[in-house]
Every structure is written in structure tokens, then in C-alpha cells.
Amino acid sequence: MLLLTCPCCGVTAEETEFHNAGEAHLKRYGPGSDDADYEAYMFARKNPRGVHFERWRHAFGCGKFFHAARCTMTLEVFGTYSAQTLAPPAEIAAKIKARRPEWEGYK
């Protein structure tokens, strides 16, 4: 089971208190966008083996969204950070690189 810490309210709890909202750092496309871009946004998602960045919501707490960096193979959580961040913070990237040397960095 994952243990996540909400960066908004500081509560650490099991994943059942949170709701996974899919891949983080997506460029969202809406009405008026190119059909191919909109289709890719709606249906194409990464399903990596290894480090993955996800969007979570503290469903049974403050209700706010945040991002989490974790390994899909080991379920290790490298850290959580605000959903308003455009890329993972440097300290989380450094922690990932130290524990998973094969990681090529955030793309």
C-alpha cells in the first residue's frame, strides 16, 4: 500500500484516503484544438515501468489536488508536491536520480 503525504495540508495517510487522477503534467486541449491533439490528450497515456508522475486528490481530507512521483515497479514514493508546479521540484528529481540511476530525467 502507498503512503502519501498531502503537500497542501500535511497529512500522511494510506492511498485509500486519496483518489488517483491519472498522469501529471499533461498539456490539456479543449474546444477549438486540433483533432489529433485532442484525441491524444483524451486517450493516450503513458504507462511506464519505473518512475512515473501522477496527479492525486486528497478525497477524504482537504480535497485539493497534488502531484506524486513514484516507481511503478517498487511502489516507492519519492515525494509529493503542489499541482500548480509545471515540473517536478529539483529535490525530488535528485532523490529519484540517487535511488534510480537509470532514470533519464523528467521529459
Results as ranks from 00 to 15, higher is better:
Arg45Gly: 10
Lys46Gln: 13
Thr16His: 08
Pro48Phe: 04
Glu39Phe: 03
Gly50Thr: 04
Asp35Arg: 13
Lys46Cys: 02
Pro31Asp: 07
Ala44Ile: 10
Asp34Ser: 14
Glu23Met: 06
Glu14Gln: 11
Asn20Met: 06
Ala59Pro: 04
Val51Leu: 00
Phe43His: 08
Asp35Phe: 03
Ala40Phe: 01
Glu15Gly: 03
Ser33Gly: 06
Thr16Cys: 06
Ala59Trp: 02
Arg28Asp: 12
Lys46Met: 03
Lys46Trp: 05
Asp37Arg: 10
Glu15Cys: 00
Thr16Gln: 09
Gly32Gln: 07
Glu54Asn: 12
Arg45Met: 08
Ala24Glu: 01
Glu15Asn: 06
Asp35Trp: 05
Gly22Gln: 04
Phe60Gly: 12
Tyr38Asn: 09
Glu17Lys: 12
Thr12Gln: 08
Gly50Ile: 03
Ser33Ile: 00
Gly50Trp: 01
Asp37Thr: 11
His58Phe: 01
Trp56Thr: 01
Asn20Arg: 14
Phe18Glu: 05
Arg45Asn: 15
Arg49Cys: 10
Ala24Gly: 15
Ala40Tyr: 10
Ala21Met: 07
Ala36Thr: 12
Asn20Trp: 06
Glu15Trp: 02
Trp56Ser: 05
His58Ile: 05
His25Tyr: 15
Ala24Phe: 03
Tyr29Pro: 03
Glu14His: 11
His52Thr: 09
Gly50His: 01
His52Val: 12
Phe43Lys: 13
Asp34Thr: 06
Gly22His: 10
Gly22Cys: 04
Gly22Ile: 03
Thr16Ser: 12
Phe53His: 07
His25Lys: 09
Phe60Met: 11
Tyr38Ala: 05
Asn20Cys: 02
Trp56Met: 04
Val51Gly: 01
Ala44Asn: 10
Val51Thr: 11
Arg55Ala: 09
Asn47Thr: 15
Phe60Thr: 12
Ala44Phe: 00
His58Gly: 00
Ser33Pro: 04
Glu14Tyr: 07
Asp35Asn: 14
Tyr38Glu: 07
Glu17Asn: 06
